[in-house]
């Protein structure tokens, strides 16, 4: 394998890791505040559809992305209402949101576009275009550094940079700000937050809504950046993979980045190499395609060390005594 091939695989790793990373950070905010969100998948899917549909109709990808984020926020608000205000079961609420999104996106898509539950292909301004970073062309001929900068770092769409920037931003918010301290505390021991005179409800809503925004970006990127339009069930379990990555990452932002890159790499390898000849036998493409999901199951089954979730995760807060 030459440098160029490696760079191309890594380049698509970055792009495939982006929606996972955004969704994973979304889940991180929510779960650090004690709200389980298995509805990441549904929110991504809804956002993917509305981003693609509105981008197509308006011809402007930014308006599309905004619509996507809006739809994801709406679903987040429903999740918040169900699990914070009405103290419903967080798993059921998340599951319902995903099922709702899976059905509604296809139904609305068919009603609006009559293309079998998909949106028309997006072109031009309706898609996120790659951004060429400064000096990318000029540096390209420089050995090693040139191709790395030109191929790998430059030439992604805006949301890719947003996603990677969100890692240090998330870390900084969680560990360096008052909001972050309270957010982490509410996921560990809401009673401590409440007796300290801070609203548990408000904090948890804030976390869930931040989750909605990030999830919305993940979906929008999927339909208008990674691909050109919405197709049925296009998230393909990425929401669940993001959750697995979150557990793998032990609910920490930097580890989340590494976990998502690992999943991205597996997907990138599967896309690039159809059948891998190992000499003795051939790894079929199906196996490679299935690998991220297999890894998800392995991680969720707890084979990768002990991950301690936020202590109050999934628990309602009821004032007592």
């Amino acid at each position: 394998m030459d440098l160029m091939t490696i760079l191309q695989v890594l380049d698509s790793t970055v792009r495939l890791a982006t929606p996972l990373l955004l969704a994973c950070l979304a889940g991180l905010f929510s779960e650090r505040a004690g709200i389980i969100d298995i509805g990441l998948e549904g929110k991504m899917l809804a956002s993917a559809f509305f981003a693609a549909a509105i981008a197509y109709m308006s011809g402007n990808v930014w308006i599309g992305a905004l619509a996507g984020v809006g739809s994801s926020l709406l679903l987040s608000a429903i999740h918040g209402l169900a699990s914070i205000t009405y103290r419903g079961n967080q798993i059921i609420s998340g599951l319902a949101i995903t099922m709702l999104a899976q059905g509604m996106t296809v139904l609305i898509a068919q009603d609006w576009f009559s293309q079998g539950g998909r949106t028309p292909s997006l072109v031009g301004q309706a898609r996120f275009e790659p951004i060429t970073l400064p000096f990318a062309e000029a540096l390209a001929p420089v050995p090693v550094i040139g191709p790395i900068y030109h191929e790998l770092i430059s030439g992604h769409s805006a949301l890719v940079y947003v996603a990677f920037l969100m890692v240090p931003v998330t870390w900084w918010i969680l560990f360096r700000t008052r909001f972050g301290l309270r957010l982490r505390a509410v996921g560990e021991n809401p009673a401590a937050v409440d007796t300290a005179g801070v609203s548990v409800i408000w904090l948890r809503y804030a976390a869930v809504l931040i989750c909605g925004v990030l999830c919305g970006l993940a979906g929008a990127y999927l339909a208008t950046g990674l691909q050109a339009g919405f197709v049925k069930d296009m998230t393909a379990g990425r929401g669940y993979i993001a959750l697995a990555a979150l557990i793998f990452a032990k609910w920490r932002p930097w580890y989340a980045l590494y976990a998502c890159l690992l999943f991205g790499l597996l997907q990138a390898v599967a896309v690039r190499y159809q059948n891998i000849d190992l000499g003795a036998f051939v790894l079929p493409v199906q196996f490679m395609d299935a690998l991220p999901y297999i890894l998800t199951v392995v991680i969720l089954a707890g084979f990768v060390g002990k991950a301690t979730p936020p202590r109050a995760i999934g628990q309602h807060y009821v004032k007592e005594r």
């Binding site: 360096r176 008052r178 909001f179 301290l181």
Partner: peptide, 9 residues
């Protein structure tokens, strides 16, 4: 916790 001064920790 809950009695911080300002936005930064």
């Amino acid at each position: 916790l809950g009695a911080e001064e300002g936005n930064l920790l």
